[in-house]
């Protein structure tokens, strides 16, 4: 059946056909690049638009003024302080719990229904809409536990959101560590916890850190659950300072204080009809997006450098 007869004709027919098909390849390449280019441009436009719109407000006063009825003098002092304090709570709750959870699932849990149950729950929690966490926090923290609409409540709420991210990152980082490293540690007489603490956790630290940064970046921008627990939108005072000049130098009164956070302040200003407030919103948005892009950028960079550096 080999085509000796009319061979040249056959070859030419094939060539014409290939040319036609290759055109589809090329067209799709262009479409693909175009789509991805548009997405990148969308991201850029997003960023530039906020920065340009908000530029007139980008000065120190904006960071040191309270919100005000007058758009010109309004600032984000209470919002960024609130965000920072809420994040401190979130960090100290979500990180230990998430890392411990991840360690348990990877290093300790035996295969079986119990591990499966936890696993299914972690997977589903990652997909629960953030506003549902807000409802949980409203019912549980605000009213059942009587924590009120406080910084503590908000921090706990956001830590629920951050938890699955930290758990998943911890597990992935731990899973990348080969068995022979653990065996080497066991072989010199280490206990399970020593192996975990001295080796597994140390080597997984980079990956865990990536997850923590991404989780914190997400917590900074989260709005819906914080609104749902009833965060105030207009706050013209600061919570008590966490550090004092009298012993024991630390107080926890700020945990119970009312608060607002950056995204809520932005949301509040977007909702005003006056254009001047939209400028404030843009400036706040620029602050938020610079923070989150920076944190995500660091996390991505960190992940790539870990992937490059470590070859087991």
């Amino acid at each position: 059946m080999s085509k000796i007869i009319g061979h040249e004709d056959n070859l030419n027919a094939i060539r014409v056909l290939i040319k036609k098909h290759k055109k589809n390849d090329r067209i799709f390449s262009y479409i693909g690049l175009f789509v991805i280019g548009s997405l990148a441009i969308a991201l850029l436009v997003l960023f530039l638009d906020l920065v340009i719109d908000g530029y007139p407000k980008m000065n120190l006063e904006f960071f040191s003024n309270f919100p005000s009825r007058k758009p010109e003098g309004a600032g984000i002092l209470s919002a960024w302080v609130g965000s920072a304090l809420v994040l401190i709570v979130t960090f100290f709750v979500a990180v230990p719990m998430g890392v411990a959870s991840g360690i348990y699932l990877e290093e300790y849990a035996k295969k079986g229904w119990f591990a499966d149950l936890i696993e299914i729950n972690v997977a589903n929690l990652a997909g629960v809409p953030s506003i549902i966490y807000g409802l949980l926090a409203l019912g549980l923290f605000v009213y059942e536990f009587g924590l009120g609409q406080s910084i503590l409540t908000a921090g706990l709420t956001l830590s629920l959101l951050m938890l699955p991210i930290v758990i998943v990152a911890t597990r992935e980082a731990i899973r990348a560590i080969p068995v022979h490293i653990r065996e080497a540690a066991y072989a010199v007489g280490a206990t399970k916890w020593q192996v975990t603490l001295h080796h597994v956790l140390q080597y997984a630290m980079g990956g865990v850190l990536t997850g923590i940064i991404i989780g914190m970046a997400r917590a900074i921008g989260e709005t819906a659950p914080v609104i749902t627990i009833g965060a105030l939108t207009f706050i013209a005072f600061l919570p008590p300072t966490p550090v004092t000049d009298v012993a024991p130098f630390i107080n926890f009164a700020w945990l119970e204080a009312g608060f607002t956070v950056l995204p809520i302040q932005m949301f509040n200003w977007i909702s005003r009809p006056e254009h001047a407030f939209h400028i404030n919103a843009a400036a706040t948005g620029a602050v938020i997006i610079i923070l989150t892009l920076l944190m995500n950028g660091i996390a991505i960079k960190l992940r790539y450098s870990i992937r490059k550096k470590i070859k087991w």
């Binding site: 991805i36 997405l39 990148a40 969308a42 991201l43 997003l46 906020l50 991404i214 970046a217 997400r218 900074i220 921008g221 989260e222 709005t223 819906a224 995204p263 932005m266 949301f267 977007i270 919103a281 843009a282 948005g285 938020i288 997006i289 989150t292 892009l293 944190m295 995500n296 950028g297 991505i300 790539y304």
Partner: peptide, 18 residues
Amino acid sequence: IKPVLELLVGVPTVVFGY
């Protein structure tokens, strides 16, 4: 390209709302 997409995922939704 993948890092760009990851950055897009990181944009807070309140900003998208704006």
